[in-house]
């Protein structure tokens, strides 16, 4: 018997629980020669803002032990150009498209974006990125100015999620930051405000310095750490959140293969996202899907849901 891989994220039904994470898969067209797109559970786009955004000065990335730092600064063409130039290809991929959005100003911009996208039928869900560590929030949101992220404050998280919730009937996913004291507290705030699901985690804030020149390796000085280096932290957070919320978790952080994907399912993730590994082996996500089928068959598990949160204690 074929094991059942499909899962639900809010109103969205995924054929399988393996997605590709925002910012690591461009707008999918860049990877069309390397990945059979239609096999993916879903594609999450690079984050879009209302207006085109230039991003941060280079250098924007550097490699670190078992990981990498990035401070791209959300370079993107803005929502209207995205809809005109990027969405047509994404639509053709035949898999659910989850659009990641963020605001360069305040709550109002989130609402405007959500309203604009609400009527676009080719978009399956909206992920609100309230956890990008590489932009300055000159927002009007109290407690979230300067380098403080919305996802670092439960009240601000609640306020943003609630406002976006009112603006769209689409499945709403909130992306959380690991740069917090208690991620479960923020997760609960998002759940209470009406988020359908949670993506966790975004990158950990880090630094790297060239000892020879004494210059930071990233122009923006601080940057987001991703890759296998952060996996144990991400996994712990997945488990913590799983125990405190009822909505589905999309787990991510250093997943590179089937065994690391399974760790997240076992710690409570309903779906997982492949991020940095897309750069190393673009076929990582599709290989995990095959690996998952094999794992379930070998262990005589009929439905993938049986392993979600099944941590043996």
């Amino acid at each position: 018997m074929k094991p059942k891989l499909s899962v639900n994220i809010g109103k969205l039904k995924l054929n399988n629980p393996v997605m590709v994470a925002s910012g690591t898969f461009g707008y999918a067209e860049e990877l069309k020669d390397l990945v059979i797109l239609k096999e993916l559970g879903a594609i999450v786009t690079k984050t879009i803002t209302l207006n085109p955004r230039r991003g941060n000065p280079p250098p924007r990335t550097c490699e670190t032990p078992s990981g990498m730092l990035n401070s791209i600064g959300l370079e993107n063409p803005g929502v209207e150009n995205f809809l005109k130039e990027k969405l047509p290809f994404l639509k053709k991929s035949g898999v659910p498209i989850i659009i990641s959005i963020t605001s360069e100003s305040g709550v109002e911009e989130f609402v405007k974006l959500a309203r604009r996208l609400d009527g676009v039928k080719d978009i399956s869900a909206i992920e609100i990125n309230i956890s990008c560590p590489n932009i300055r929030n000159d927002t009007k949101i109290p407690r979230c100015q300067g380098t403080r992220l919305i996802a670092q404050d439960p009240k601000a998280t609640h306020e943003v999620v609630k406002a976006v919730r009112k603006a769209t009937g689409k499945t709403l996913i909130t992306k959380l930051s690991p740069n917090v004291t208690s991620i479960a507290e923020i997760a609960q705030a998002a759940e209470e405000a009406g988020s359908d699901a949670l993506s966790l985690v975004n990158t950990l804030i880090g630094m790297s310095v060239d000892a020879g020149t004494r210059k930071p390796k990233i122009a923006a000085i601080t940057a987001g750490l991703s890759g296998p280096a952060i996996r144990p932290v991400a996994l712990r957070m997945c488990w913590e959140v799983y125990q405190k919320v009822k909505i589905p978790i999309i787990g991510m952080g250093g997943i590179t293969d089937i065994s690391s994907a399974l760790e997240f399912f076992i710690c409570g993730a309903t779906a997982i996202s492949v991020g940095t590994a897309n750069f190393i082996n673009p076929k990582t996500a599709t290989e995990i899907i095959s690996g998952l089928k094999e794992y379930l068959s070998e262990n005589k598990i009929n439905n993938m849901k049986e392993i979600i949160g099944d941590l043996k204690l």
Partner: peptide, 20 residues
């Protein structure tokens, strides 16, 4: 230095007359 090498991550930009 590049991360993805295929245009997906926007990591390796250079400044041009038309922006990055």
């Amino acid at each position: 230095h590049m991360a993805c090498g295929i245009g997906a991550c926007f990591g390796c930009v250079a400044e041009t007359k038309e922006g990055y």
